[in-house]
Design a protein around this nucleic acid. Structure first.
Lengths: 215, 215
DNA sequence: AAAATAATCTAATCTTGGTTAGATTATTCA
DNA sequence: TGAATAATCTAACCAAGATTAGATTATTTT
């Protein structure tokens, strides 16, 4: 086959994007480095120039996805909208993120446990390997912290709304789980060519949640 | 190590139970036949006496889990309770199934796509292999059909409730997805030692959904 | 209790997929 | 432009894990 004329080097970003997509479709264990590489016209081996290993790649995908939504959510929370409006917009941001950047969501939803599978370097491994592992563990912890933060922001707004009597006094923790569950599930069934647009879905989920919170 | 004194032969049921548990924890690709075997004090090879292969085992787990909940749901739907009571009980059944038989739910939620990974026998494979594959594909289709049935029962009740003016006229399809998403997610975060019992969770989710449907 | 069948085991096979080594080609920078 | 660096590639390597073969032990059946 004719060699592609130096398709320009592939950016880390491009890899993350493609990887996220493949991961969402197949799940972590089921997607091979080759799959990901193929998605950007590279060889599996080439990926190792950009990422230390498969786990690091996964983590990078998750980080990117989380930050993307988290940044939006944060600014909404810190705005001075009413509790109802805040929640409405947070839900929209989350759900639309899930439907647009196919990556963002479902990957995050499903692959988190895979992160735990990273195995320590053997006792005889090089110090570099040990350092790399240590770094990984640290980044992973950071990721989980950010993830908790995400959930806490939703909790916060729900609690706030209850306190200022905008919302019915639900169990804050549980309601938040219910809500996030509903959102995350969208990443599982959503198809771009489906009956409802991402926006319409986001809109209606927000309505539903807010209706459930009506005092 | 001393050989275990003929621990009695392990039943297919026992394997399914154990497998479901392990699968829920690790996911399909990440759990090895050895893992499953270990959970019932067997050797990986021994599992092949009970199931044709890993895929068949997974499918059997999913079938069992689905049927268990589905049977309950069906009888509720066909009862003559009010739409509200039906829905309330259906939600309870589903969520409690998810929290009790740890197996049942989360496994089902996450592993379905794994089912699609089953690869056809090579062109040169034995006729027996081809037949086996054909059977598998058929059972799988049946499974998905049952699964759709499950979702449809929820849709049915929501629609019924809207028609008899018990429920607010939501988008039936979407609301059902929201609801099932919330349920399924329970299988992801629920921990038996957590703050809320499975029953309490089920109860409150039902309340929440019904509140969201208040006309 | 012999024969047939069921349930397990150990040992080997085979494939897949992550990872590494070393060479090659492109790019950038001094 | 020549040296350093970046990005890729091809070719191995290696380990893990599914599956198979064949032997062994238990349980039924007749």
């Amino acid at each position: 086959m004719a060699r592609k004329p130096a398709d320009q080097s592939v950016s880390r970003e491009a890899i993350l994007l493609a990887a996220a997509d493949v991961l969402q479709r197949n799940g972590y264990e089921a997607t091979t480095m080759k799959d990901i590489a193929a998605a950007v016209n590279l060889t599996a081996a080439s990926l190792y120039h950009h990422f230390r290993n498969k786990d690091a790649l996964l983590l990078a995908v998750l980080e990117a996805g989380l930050e993307q939504v988290l940044s939006q959510i944060e600014s909404i929370v810190h705005s001075k909208l009413s509790s109802t409006d805040k929640l409405q917009q947070m839900i929209r941001a989350h759900v639309m993120g899930l439907t647009q950047n196919t990556a963002v969501g479902a990957a995050m939803v499903f692959e988190i446990r895979s992160l735990m599978g990273a195995k320590e370097p053997a006792v005889g491994a090089s110090p570099a390997d040990h350092q790399a592992y240590k770094d990984f563990v640290e980044r992973r912890a950071l990721f989980f912290a950010r993830r908790d933060e995400f959930e806490n922001l939703f909790r916060l707004v729900v609690r706030e709304g209850i306190e200022n009597h905008s919302f019915y006094p639900v169990d804050v923790g549980l309601f938040t789980k219910i809500m996030l569950g509903a959102h995350n599930w969208v990443g599982v069934w959503y198809k771009p060519e489906g009956r409802l647009s991402g926006e319409a879905i986001a809109e209606r989920i927000a309505e539903t949640m807010i209706r459930a919170l009506k005092p």
